[in-house]
Simulated assay, not measured.
Amino acid sequence: MAVRRKWWMAAVLIGLVVSGALAWHWTSLSARARLGTAYGARIGCSCRYVEGRAMGSCQQDKEPGMAMVRLTDLPEEKAVKASVPLIASRTARFRPGWGCLLDPAG
């Protein structure tokens, strides 16, 4: 029983440390997530709807460090949505004559 209590206390302590670190760095993390999703949506949309490539090959165009950015093809809208779960998301849409444009942030 004492061993179980020690593991429980260790898990709580680790959770508090991780939560504190997230809170401490939240401004930087959310700014990077917003930047990464805007870049990912724009590059993914250009890959898919300007170059005409398959969405699977567009995943390879992401820069190093963008592993958390998920790209989703929205073919009925000719758009690509990029997201970092629970933090940020942006969408870029193809406009003939203009290329891919980001939707307004918000």
Rank of each mutant, 00 (worst) to 15 (best):
P75A: 07
W24R: 07
G20V: 08
R42Q: 14
V50A: 11
A54D: 13
S89M: 06
T27P: 05
V17W: 04
R4G: 06
G97K: 02
D73T: 10
G44K: 08
S28V: 14
E76W: 13
S28Q: 11
W98A: 15
L13S: 10
V3W: 15
S19W: 05
A88E: 10
E76H: 14
P96V: 01
A21D: 00
P96H: 04
R95E: 13
G20T: 03
E77G: 07
R90I: 00
M68C: 04
S83T: 12
R42D: 07
D103W: 01
W7P: 08
R5G: 04
R70P: 00
L74W: 07
L71V: 05
E63Q: 14
C47W: 02
R4Y: 15
R95F: 09
P85S: 03
R32D: 12
W26K: 03
W8R: 12
A33H: 10
E51T: 10
L86R: 14
P104C: 06
R5S: 07
K6P: 04
V69S: 05
L71Q: 07
R4I: 14
S46W: 05
G99Q: 04
D61N: 13
S57E: 15
G44Q: 06
E51C: 03
T27F: 00
A2P: 05
A41M: 10
R34H: 11
A10L: 15
L86W: 13
P96C: 06
L35E: 08
E77I: 06
C47F: 10
S57C: 08
L74H: 01
R32M: 13
D103N: 07
I14E: 05
R48V: 05
W98H: 13
K62D: 07
K6T: 14
W7N: 08
K78Y: 05
R5Y: 13
M66S: 02
T37N: 06
R93E: 08
A88Y: 14
T27R: 12
C45S: 04
Q60A: 02
C45L: 02
G106Y: 01
T72G: 02
K81A: 06
Y39D: 09
R90F: 00
W26H: 08
K78V: 03
A23W: 13
L29Y: 07
R90E: 01
A33Q: 06
G36I: 02
A23P: 00
